[in-house]
Design a protein around this nucleic acid. Sequence first.
DNA 1: CACAATTAAATTGTGCACAACTAAATGGGG
DNA 2: CCCCATTTAGTTGTGCACAATTTAATTGTG
Lengths: 160, 160
Amino acid sequence: MNRTGTPTAPQEEWLRLDRQICFSLHAAARAFNGVYRVILKDLGLTYPQYLVMLVLWEHGDLPVKKLGEHLRLDSGTLSPLLKRLESAGLVRRERSARDERSVQVRLTEEGSALRERALQVPRRIAAATGFDIEEISALRSRLDELTIALDEAALSAAAP
Amino acid sequence: MNRTGTPTAPQEEWLRLDRQICFSLHAAARAFNGVYRVILKDLGLTYPQYLVMLVLWEHGDLPVKKLGEHLRLDSGTLSPLLKRLESAGLVRRERSARDERSVQVRLTEEGSALRERALQVPRRIAAATGFDIEEISALRSRLDELTIALDEAALSAAAP
DNA sequence: CACAATTAAATTGTGCACAACTAAATGGGG
DNA sequence: CCCCATTTAGTTGTGCACAATTTAATTGTG
């Protein structure tokens, strides 16, 4: 490799590197998932369900559409997930009166109350990473840059 | 926050930060997945299938167990995935003669040949990230550290 | 040798991600 | 005012991740 990032290594080498980076990200996401799984078991939440609850706790009641924008998830993922949160008694779903296409997701008493118990989660996760808050922030920034770049690339599709 | 990484922010603030880091990683993994999906469509592979093929191209034929160790995946995930790769004609699965519990995964001619077409994938992915090779390597190192720490934490389980 | 413990795959069941499609409500242009 | 494009949720089908269980082969130990 050289300082400009222009590939000089043979393609074989690139294939090996590709395995490393895509595998690393994949593995890290699953490792995170595993730690959350353990810690969230107490709360009866999965990791994606926890993400939904975090958004609702932060922003209050939201239509499914807005929830999906915050989380980059579509109704294909959210509809069944919200149905499970509803049968767990944490949210209610109500058709909006103003626009009958829209479904408002509302925290129940129980859903709001769960927030108190969730307050200890981030500390435990941070402890599990062994990273301090600045390292976490730095990594987060890198990942966000990456996500933005990748989303753009996915839009401009599959040109070689 | 302060320079030691000791939390001084209120728990409320931590909840917001937690949303950010776990969300960032989750989103980055899915964005990566999306770009691979587009690029791998040509090859008729999904992202996890591509990971399996990369390991086989690099290490040659392997038993399911070893494959799982390289990828941190168990037979619950690999068995159906390998079945799909087999019906796509890319691998064969054969019970080992020496140890009948073990199943050897072997590349077919077609599976080996696919490697040639895969050689262009990493360049296209790297282009999509917009990162140069050193940035990618640095990020990879960070993620690997994170994965190791998280795996350890998951083992020592759910102590508050 | 016999038998219990271990190991390797596969299977089953749950949940998430996403593409493709459907259904219903909305809103703007002729 | 009516029709049609758009918007919002939901549904269906495929594939992955993982826990729990099952089956079969192997290994270790008395």
